[in-house]
Amino acid sequence: MSMASNAERSEALEWFDIAGVDDIIPGTGAPARLGDKQIAVFRDKTNIYAIDNLDPFSDANVLSRGLLADMKGRICVASPVYKQHFCLKTGECLEDATVNVRAYPVTLRDERILVGIAE
C-alpha cells in the first residue's frame, strides 16, 4: 500500500467517540456500536485497538470477549469460541489469512477513545 492511498484514506475518515479510556480495564476488550456495525475495542498496557466484533468462524458477535495474546510480539485476540487469533493492528487471522476481520484506526483525545471509519 502506498503512502498516498493511506493519506487519502485518513482524510476520508469519520471519527466516533466511543467511550472513556478508563471504561475498559487494561488487558481486556469491550464491545461498542459504530453505526449499524459492532466493533471490539481492546486496551493493553499502552494502546487501544479496534476490530470487528463479529467472529467470522462462529458468526457470533464475541471477539471483544476473547483473551489478549502476545503471539511472538504481535498483539492479537484469541476468539473465545474456536480460539483463532486475530491481529489487533491489521485484523489478520493468523490461522487462515482468507478470513480476516477489519481493523479500525483509533486515537485518544482528552482521555476519550475515538474510532475512525471510512465514510
Binding site: 480495564i25 487494561p26 488487558g27 462462529s58 464475541v62 470477549r65 483473551l67 489478549l68 469460541v81
Partner: peptide, 22 residues
C-alpha cells in the same frame, strides 16, 4: 478483580458458559 479479569477465559470472565451464538 480488575487485576485478574484479563486472565480469564470468556466462561470465567462472565461466570457463565459461552454458547455457539454468543
Amino acid at each position: 478483580d480488575p487485576k485478574h479479569v484479563g486472565l480469564q477465559d470468556t466462561n470465567d470472565n462472565f461466570l457463565a458458559n459461552l454458547q455457539k451464538d454468543g
